[in-house]
């Protein structure tokens, strides 16, 4: 399954990655070969097989609702490129794109 140049650019845009023309070409080939490899699985007859949600044979791994101290605030923002007054500082964003 060959991935088109536009598809690679779209995936790049969704991942916030700027790609050069060379990279687009190279990644198109690499991504296509990955998809081809996955496509092989389609040769198997999986009707009657439950979809697998998780590789581990586990469920209901839960913890009790008891608070524990986290990171020191200094440390929390310490690794960020910029911080001020305990906040992370980021380039100004205006539109509320949050979709939580």
């Amino acid at each position: 399954m060959a991935l088109s140049k536009d598809e690679v650019l779209k995936v790049g845009a969704l991942s916030r990655i700027r790609l050069t023309d060379d990279e687009v070409e190279r990644f198109a080939g690499q991504l296509s070969s990955i998809l081809d490899y996955v496509d092989k699985l389609n040769e198997l007859d999986t009707s009657g097989v439950e979809p697998l949600a998780h590789a581990l044979p586990l469920h209901n791994v839960l913890r009790e609702d008891e608070p524990r101290p986290g990171l020191d605030p200094q440390k929390a923002v310490g690794g960020a490129p910029e911080s001020a007054g305990g906040f992370f500082r980021v380039p100004r964003v205006i539109d509320d794109g949050s979709s939580a």
Binding site: E82, F87, F88, P91, R92, V93
Partner: peptide, 15 residues
């Protein structure tokens, strides 16, 4: 929480 202080060109984030 994302906040936009009146002054500068930055937004600040409280996680």
């Amino acid at each position: 929480k994302l906040m936009h202080p009146e002054d500068g060109a930055c937004s600040v984030v409280d996680l």
